[in-house]
Structures are given as C-alpha cells and as structure tokens.
Design a protein around this nucleic acid. Sequence first.
DNA 1: ATTCTGCTAACTGCTAACAGTTTACAGATA
DNA 2: TATCTGTAAACTGTTAGCAGTTAGCAGAAT
Lengths: 268, 268
Amino acid sequence: MTASNTRATSPSPLLSLARKRTRAEEVTERLREAILRGVFEPGQPVSEEQLAASLGVSRGPVHEAVVQLQHEGLVLIRPNRRAVVARLTRRDLEEVYSLRLAMEQLAVQYAIHHARTEDFDMMEAVIRSLEDAAVRGINEQEAADFDINFHDLVYRAAQHERLYQVWSKLKSQVYVFLLSRNIANPDFREQGIIRGHTAILDALRARDEKRAVELTEQHLRAAYLRILAAFPEHEEAGEADSALSIDESAPPHVRRPPVGPLQARRKT
Amino acid sequence: MTASNTRATSPSPLLSLARKRTRAEEVTERLREAILRGVFEPGQPVSEEQLAASLGVSRGPVHEAVVQLQHEGLVLIRPNRRAVVARLTRRDLEEVYSLRLAMEQLAVQYAIHHARTEDFDMMEAVIRSLEDAAVRGINEQEAADFDINFHDLVYRAAQHERLYQVWSKLKSQVYVFLLSRNIANPDFREQGIIRGHTAILDALRARDEKRAVELTEQHLRAAYLRILAAFPEHEEAGEADSALSIDESAPPHVRRPPVGPLQARRKT
DNA sequence: ATTCTGCTAACTGCTAACAGTTTACAGATA
DNA sequence: TATCTGTAAACTGTTAGCAGTTAGCAGAAT
C-alpha cells in the first residue's frame, strides 16, 4: 500500500499547518507495512514488547497500533495473550468482497453526484500509469498498488466520510488478498484491471449511475473469483473460522456459500 | 443501548470460560452510556484526566476508551487537544443512514441464507415485547432500544462478522439520532416500527430476498425522513462540516442532497 | 514413549511520573 | 472598550516500572 496512503491532493507544503503525526500513528504505519510485506507470517505471534524495543519506542504507542490493526483485520488480539497476525481464510475473502461490493456500489453513486472533474482526471492518470507500467512489466505489488489507488480515488470522490472509513479498514485486507492470491497470468490480470477501471471511469463521467453500479459489480465479482480460484482446495488444518472471531460461542462450522451478487449467477 | 449490547444468546453461566473484560472495555462502556444518556452535551470537551480520576482508574484505559468511541463516531479527537463529544449534523444523518441502508440490505440477504429458526423467533419476541410495551406506553429510550434490538438481531442472523462490526459502530450513532430527533407522535412511531419489523421478518421467513431488500429500504428511508424532519431549519452556527472530519483540507462547504435510495423518489 | 505437573521466563494490563503542547486569563497596548 | 501578549495551569503523549497472567519446558508419573 506504499503509495495508496499518500494524499491524493498533496497539501501545500508552505503554511501546511502540518497535522502532527503522533508516534502511535507512525508505529501503526510501520507495522501495517511490515505485515503487508510479509515480514510477519500469518499466524505468527507479535510481541508488543519486542516490537517496542526494536522500534526504539515504549509499549504505549505500540499497543495502540496493534489495536488499530486489529480494527483493520490484520491482527487478532485476545486479552493477556500476544497478538497474532491474521490468517485470512476463504470465508474472510467472501466477507471482505461482499462488504466491499455493497460499499463500492454506494461509493460510485455518491461519486457520480459529488465528484469534481479533477477527481476524474486523477483516476485517469492512475489508469494511464498502469498502462505505461504494464508495458515494461511490473510485479504483483505494483499491480496491487495501482489497483487499490484507483478504487481509493473513487471512494474519495464520493465525499462520504464514514464510507471512506469503512473502506480504509477493508483496504488492508484487500491488499493482502491481492498480494497473496492474485496469481493469474500478469498480462491478462493487468489488462482486465485496466479495462474494468476504464469502463467504470467512463460511466462515472457520463453520470450513468445504473451502468456504474453494474460495472462495479462485474469488476469486483471478477476479482473475487480470480482470488478464490487461487485458494488451495483443502484449507490449512486447524484454521480458525475467521481471522477476527472474538466471539467465543461460535456455532459449529457450516459451509457457507456466497450470498447475493457474489454467488454464481443464474439469471442476468 | 442498555439492552442491545447484551448477547442475544446468553452463554451458559456454568463453565462459561468468561472472557475476562479488560478495564479499558469497562471504561468504554461507561463512557458510551454516559454520552448516549446525554450526561455529556454535544460539543462539550471530555478530559481524559478528569474522567480517569472520577472513575478511579489511570489514564491508559481511558485513552483507549476515547479512541474506541472516536471509531464509533461519538467523540472527536485531535492530537494534544481534549476530546469533544460529537455534534451530529444533518450531513452526518445522511451519511449514517445511506451507509446503514447499504449494510442492512446486505444483512437481510445474508440472514435469509444463514439464519436459524431461533433467530426468527428472537426477532418475533422483540416485536411482541414492543407491542406489549406500547400498550402501557413507553418513553423514547425504550422505543429506541426495541428498535435497535430488532435490527441487531437481523445483523447477528446474517452471520457476517465484518458486517456486524460496521453495524456496531453505526449503532451508537443511530441511537443518538433516535433519541434526539425521533420526536414524532409516539403512537404513530411505534406502530410504524412494529409494522415495518413485522413485514421484514415475514419476508425473511419466506426467504423472499427481493421483498426483504425492498422493505428494508422503505423502513429505513421512512426512519431517515422522520429524523430529518425533526432537524431545525437553520443548523447551529459554527457547526463543523461533520462530526468526524479528521481531514483538515476540506473543500468549501457545499449543499449535498442525499444520493441513491434515500433521496426523494421520482420513479419507483 | 506419552501424558501430567509445577516452575520460570516472557509478556500484557495497568499505574505513575515526565516532557511538551494547548488553553485560559491577567495585564499590557492601542 | 477591544485586541494583543505573555505566563501559569491544564492536559495529552510518552515512558518506565509493577502486578498478575500466560506460554514454554524440564522433570515426574504413567
């Protein structure tokens, strides 16, 4: 997510009133980056104490960071136990993408009404960058960055704070899925992303709400299926029901087929 | 939210392995309750230090609680400044309800596929309780509790952890709106709630996805409009753009009409 | 060999104290 | 009188240390 967290509109460096970053925020970012880059394996315990020592900071800010990353679904905390890096399952994938689809359809509706032309221009620039980069060949991480950046701009253009907050939390998990499972043929994958984003941008510019919503569904369902296909047939033994699951009184595990627009389509 | 946070299925008191509540969680609950009950007025600063002193606890857990309540949208924090109780505006109302609508439509879809019969029975029980209570007359807070409890059961029945998390955050804000603005004629309001909930429950039991989604939209749009109507015509002077707004480089304020299904309908 | 038992080290939750920032206000200045 | 300025009090962010819990492992028991 290297680039996706930088502001789309860079604040003027002069007189910028620079909102002071608290130490906890810096730790959060470092730790998030480390987890996303795979420095910590899924399932691996993360000691606040060790982390604090290695970052040369006390445990207070580190604790805050860990809590924040739990909200983002990257780690799992249970009281008095060490935090554990989340192991995202097939079920988590379905949850993330079903939720994302609902939110992103809302986002394009809002974007159509509230976006400024600069917003569209920035989206176009991101698509162009990906096209250029695709020519010289890029790795998975770069592809994921471009992908997420485009969608991030859509959410920003929607000018819906709460919607953006929810997306921010989901974003990290989407990134994990993109990196770990998005192993289709690169050319095919990148062209699909480019075509999908271009189509969505066109619909947004045309203020065609129905089409934008429809295209979003297609785009995300395709992404979902591509990632799902890369999951191993038998999931790892002893896998938790979900990466989150604070809930201890979970009902016995049931196979849950996807619901709603993510499920295999009959009619259309 | 007195009752809505208790577990729907109470864990067996024997051998319950009782998940130990951390001090920070207790403080969070107390503070949330205090804000929802109006002990702190919107706009009023909340000192972590004073709060810690008055609760007989150190500032660590209190800070954690304040951060948590910021996530729930009940307070606003800026670094090095005292937290302030959120003042929810008309725009916040629109954000909350547009997001809620998208979430809840997803929830009923999942509930239709994953709910057990007990889930429906519990929903029915809540509706019945409200009917009984309405006869003897109830105050706004009780009505809000019944209302939220029903919807909470729907989200639980969906068995979608991330969806429930988002709803949990929204729930507090919905509660604030219900308490502060839901001032329609009680009889009318309660009958509307009862009818709405009954219709949704029927559609869920019938596994009629399309109807359930449609009814949810009607129910929530009605609630939105009822609350909106109670907003004063001229909002308080000096009101922030939004209760959240970490973003300091906000564009000049623009009148934003609701988007999507919340807006006034032309076609249907 | 495998399962239990008890101990030690590692670690988290919490508290208390320090350093730097913000708020509030009294007095100075126009 | 109204506005500016400097200073003290209030408050947050951070650190370090204590108390209680958990994890890991060596040795006993089967």
